[in-house]
């Protein structure tokens, strides 16, 4: 079991958890993830590692509350114990290549952070393009600024940075400054697909980190499989990073919707129960 040492809300529906997992903290490399189980009746949820501190024996998870389990995690208090397994997945290949554009969208900014930092430490010129629907959803800005040489921000509503999508910013960057050596994009599948479509004709090597449905995270169930270059690959062990130009995003997005109805049912049920509890709490006080 691992203790949640510190929990803070960093944006609406985004929480940052400092988790005491000395062995994972010591082994974690950029690009890897963990699987978390909240309790006996819980589901195993893959979560990317946003940061780790080997000396303190901690890892940082940044979680967006989108479904029942992530919302339930949001109700936990500091000092709670959860099950954490990892580090899972293959680490990012880090080497000095020149200019690296790191694109992060929404919750995808969290796993991007250790990758950007490692690339910068390896001597690369790291240009980070971070996007979100609105200003407050562009998370981890100070951390990403420290891990990058240059920042470009975009928001859908124009409340912060340029108005528009991360792909627009990438387009402008390439027009003005030329092609980077590599693009790393992590975010919603639709964003990663758009980046891949943009860089494909320009022949810019592009890496994406996929977040699919998983159970064991050790290559045992195959639920996370994606088509990459016509081959079936397991995100948990072969990934989570793949050549963006080879990933069949359409199929992946369909597979992501497998449990849509049940997920919604679980979410509603949780909200109802939770509101009941909250109401009872007010009556009691």
């Amino acid at each position: 079991m691992a203790e949640l040492l510190k929990i803070e809300e960093i944006a609406p529906l985004f929480k940052r958890y400092l988790v005491h997992t000395p062995e994972i903290a010591r082994k974690h490399r950029a690009g890897q993830f963990v699987i978390v189980l909240l309790h006996e009746r819980g589901e195993r949820i893959p979560l990317t590692i946003a940061d780790s501190d080997a000396e303190a024996g901690t890892i940082t998870l940044v979680v967006q509350e989108v479904g029942k389990s992530t919302m339930e995690m949001g109700t936990l208090e500091e000092g709670s114990q959860i099950e954490v397994v990892g580090p899972l997945g293959t680490a990012t290949h880090i080497e000095k290549v020149g200019t690296c554009v790191c694109i992060g969208g929404g919750a995808g900014i969290a796993p991007l952070l250790p990758i950007a930092r490692a690339l910068k430490e390896a001597g690369n010129q790291v240009v980070s393009i971070l996007g979100g629907r609105t200003e407050e959803l562009v998370i981890l800005r100070p951390e990403m600024e420290a891990a990058s040489n240059e920042m470009i921000y975009t928001t859908d509503d124009g409340s912060f940075g340029r108005k528009g999508l991360v792909t627009h910013a990438l387009e402008t960057f390439v027009e003005e400054r030329g092609k980077p050596e590599i693009v790393i994009a992590i975010g919603p599948a639709i964003m990663m697909k758009a980046v891949a479509e943009m860089t494909r004709p320009l022949e810019i090597p592009t890496v994406v980190s996929l977040n699919t449905i998983m159970i064991d995270g050790t290559g045992m169930c195959g639920g996370c499989r994606v088509a990459v270059g016509g081959e079936s690959k397991f995100v948990c062990v072969d990934g989570p990073e793949f050549d963006a130009h080879k990933v069949d995003f359409d199929l992946m997005m369909k597979r992501q919707r497998t449990y849509l109805i049940k997920e919604e049912e679980a979410r509603k049920r949780f909200l109802e129960l939770h509101e009941c509890k909250a109401l009872q709490g007010t009556e009691a006080s």
Partner: peptide
């Protein structure tokens, strides 16, 4: 499904008892 995934969901994660258990 692979047999592994199907059986793991049902046996280990108790998907037969969804939504009492969270795994569908």
């Amino acid at each position: 499904y692979s047999a592994n995934e199907f059986l793991t969901r049902v046996n280990l994660m108790k998907a037969f008892a969804f939504p009492e258990y969270d795994t569908p």
